[in-house]
């Protein structure tokens, strides 16, 4: 028996979510009295792979195969199914991101294993296996039991956090069996946005809404974000108007994020916007309307003109950074 996790690398470096997933799997494995096996597909150097063991992976399996260079849902599913059987895994965990959402449901069918997505914590009980997930775009939670012997989960990002628990480093390579019938999609071209902090990976996010008045006013948002090492986001109308690019749109129909700090600048806090950010640990709202619904979701708030408040905030953060 073991807990198997699917890790993801970005140009050979693991994303933070992979380390979170190992940390999480470690606690699940403890509850089940078993070990954690991490699967890595693609070229990752040994020094990077070793980092997975710091968070508790007992075994790391790497797969490098030319047919797996682009995400092919069918082929990836087949490889992970093979490894599940080989490792006798009873729980398989993915991050609840584009990749996890693409593969986990296919794997669920292939292994006849119940799947619970967007889980927010470790299982409440393991016999029966009951786990909590978000529903209604974080407006509620549900406890779901999985009836099959193999269980598949996708973990909501930043729901668990990082936790070091070093283990001996045990590396293995695996050569999958792939046939033509699994290779029906091909990635023709990849266009990566470089130099930007990945929104879903960011610990801090500074976000702007229509209250910012226009794209020319985004300078302070970017400056504050760069001071804090934060990602930048926006509300839907802002990306619809083309003030900011679509990959910044957060909310129910955009990206769902859960940073430790979310700073909402000139955002009213419509329910569909909150659906994408309400799981943030701490929310700061700057809005000139004291009755804006964002203040109901916020931990700290300033009622005032965001275009005046932001420069002051930048000064104050600079002061703080100078002291520490």
């Amino acid at each position: 028996m073991s807990v198997l996790i699917y890790t993801e690398n970005w140009d050979g470096k693991f994303k933070k979510l992979s380390f979170e997933l190992v940390s999480y799997a470690k606690e699940v494995a403890k509850k089940l009295n078993t070990t954690v096996t991490a699967l890595s597909i693609g070229n990752v150097e040994e020094t990077e792979l070793k980092k997975l063991s710091i968070y508790g992976a007992n075994k790391i399996i790497t797969v490098t195969n030319a047919n797996l260079s682009g995400l092919n849902n069918q082929a990836y599913t087949s490889v992970i199914a093979e490894i599940t059987v080989k490792e006798n895994a009873s729980v398989i965990a993915f991050a609840h991101n584009n990749t996890g959402k693409a593969i986990a449901p296919r794997l669920s069918v292939k292994l006849k294993a119940g799947l619970v997505t967007a889980v927010v914590a470790t299982p409440i009980t393991t016999e029966p296996f009951v786990i909590a997930k978000k529903v209604f775009t974080s407006k509620a939670y549900a406890k779901v039991s999985i009836k099959s012997s193999i269980k598949i989960l996708t973990l909501l990002q930043n729901a668990y956090g990082l936790n070091e628990s070093p283990e001996a480093f045990n590396l293995e390579t695996f050569e999958p069996i792939l046939n033509e019938s699994m290779l029906k999609t091909t990635v023709l071209d990849v266009n990566k946005i470089s130099g930007k902090i990945l929104l879903t990976d960011a610990d801090i996010v500074v976000s702007g809404g229509r209250g910012m008045k226009g794209p020319e006013n985004w300078g302070p948002i970017e400056e504050l974000a760069s001071l804090l090492g934060a990602g930048t986001a926006c509300s839907r109308p802002v990306s619809d108007e083309g003030w900011r690019s679509h990959d910044e749109h957060t909310g129910q129909t955009g990206k769902i994020i859960a940073p430790t700090l979310y700073i909402a600048c000139g955002i009213s806090g419509a329910i569909q916007h909150l659906g994408g950010v309400s799981s943030s640990k701490c929310i700061v709202a700057i809005n000139k309307d004291p009755d804006a619904p964002i203040f109901e979701a916020a931990d700290y708030g300033i009622v005032g003109d965001v275009l005046k408040v932001l420069p002051d905030m930048i000064t104050a953060v600079k002061e703080l950074k100078a002291l520490s």
Binding site: G114, K143, V144, K147, Y300, G301
Partner: peptide
């Protein structure tokens, strides 16, 4: 089905926003 929804729960009410 492979799973069962057994219980629902609303999030705990949030503490009031601190105004600065």
């Amino acid at each position: 089905s492979l799973t069962d929804f057994i219980e629902f729960e609303l999030p705990k009410p949030k503490a009031a926003c601190k105004k600065i």
